[in-house]
Amino acid sequence: MATDQQHGAGAVQDGSMQVVMIGLGDEKFALDAGLVREIIDPVPATKVAGARSFVPSVINVRGNVIPLADLRIRFGMPQTEDSADTRIVVIEVGIDDEPVLVGVTADKVYEVTEISRTDVQHTPRVGMHWKPEFIRFITKWREEFVIVPNMERILN
């Protein structure tokens, strides 16, 4: 939800923020833990003909039909086959001011952790093959750069 996002941003100002660390291809992304509803094993997805490429299908999560988003497409990353580590992270984001449940495919889910404000890096203009507006900020985790994506922008 939008408020969650704001809370998350507030938390960064205070110094730390709870995140779920996921892997997509070679990159690591930190999803604001306030947005995450559950993490499930992959389920068969149903293709939606004519849908935008980053939300190509829908899945059944506990009797609800929710869209399955593929961030790899949004970030122009190569598609990978499902592996034993593949998970679906169900998040709740505000779309047109309404909370919407969305599944996000992750190649791997690492852990729930805290990232700290002191590590925040400004989004560099160069060396990035994705749009800066999709990124809230970049931070460091275990000596690696991780991206905190702006899910609302990505999905809208």
Binding site: A49, A51, V55, P67, E98, V102
Partner: peptide, 18 residues
């Protein structure tokens, strides 16, 4: 089940079921 807003641009489906 209605389709979410992310699929509101798809007009040939009126909803989904399980």
């Amino acid at each position: 089940k209605s389709l979410s807003k992310l699929h509101s641009d798809v007009t040939i489906f009126s909803g989904a079921t399980i």
